[in-house]
């Protein structure tokens, strides 16, 4: 039950907001504005679709080519700044949504990646994932804005990972029998 709800929470939230805002548009601005908004949405859909399909094929193929376990040994607690950079690159290369990324984070954690690398990975994935930038940001916002935004986000994952290594809050990955030294 909870799992079903979680899996479809995005869709449910989006549909609810869409229904409420759509009704408001119809009531406040009239059916003409409602149809105009739907027309805008259709136009964006047609613009985005080819890139979306290509991006998903890329993601599906990469997932077969790169075994997740092969990445973990580069990202342990002793890996230093290099580990954060590797984690950043992996995060940026990681395609797919949170349903794919967070389970992979757990796999990396149990395979020995430390919290700094994990957080660098998450931030890099969320902020600068190649797939997201190429499929959504460049087509919708234009290459110049996307490049500016990308450059501003580039250092953040390493900063977050370095800060996370210094935060004195104990954490062990779920499913680990005892704390690692």
């Amino acid at each position: 039950m909870l799992r079903t709800l979680r899996r479809h929470s995005s869709l449910a939230i989006i549909l609810s907001i869409g229904l409420v805002s759509g009704s408001l548009v119809w009531v406040l601005h009239g059916p003409e504005a409602f149809r105009r908004a739907l027309g805008v949405a259709w136009g964006v859909f047609l613009t985005v679709l080819p890139a979306l399909l290509a991006g998903l094929l890329l993601a599906g193929s990469l997932k077969q080519l790169i075994p997740p376990g092969a990445l973990a040994k580069w990202m342990g607690a002793e890996s230093g700044a290099r580990g954060l950079l590797v984690a950043t690159l992996c995060g940026m290369a990681m395609p797919g949504g949170p349903m794919a990324a967070f389970p992979l984070v757990l796999v990396l954690a149990q395979a020995g990646a430390d919290r700094g690398a994990l957080i660098a990975f998450i931030v890099a994935w969320a902020l600068n994932g190649f797939q997201r930038v190429l499929v959504w940001e460049v087509p919708l916002l234009g290459a110049d804005f996307a490049l500016l935004r990308f450059l501003c986000g580039l250092p953040l994952s390493v900063i977050a990972g370095a800060v996370a290594r210094r935060i004195p809050v104990a954490w062990v990955p779920p499913g680990t029998p005892e704390p690692r030294a």
Partner: peptide
């Protein structure tokens, strides 16, 4: 996409 368009409106 319709949601974003409605919100924008």
């Amino acid at each position: 996409l319709p949601m974003a368009a409605f919100l924008a409106e």
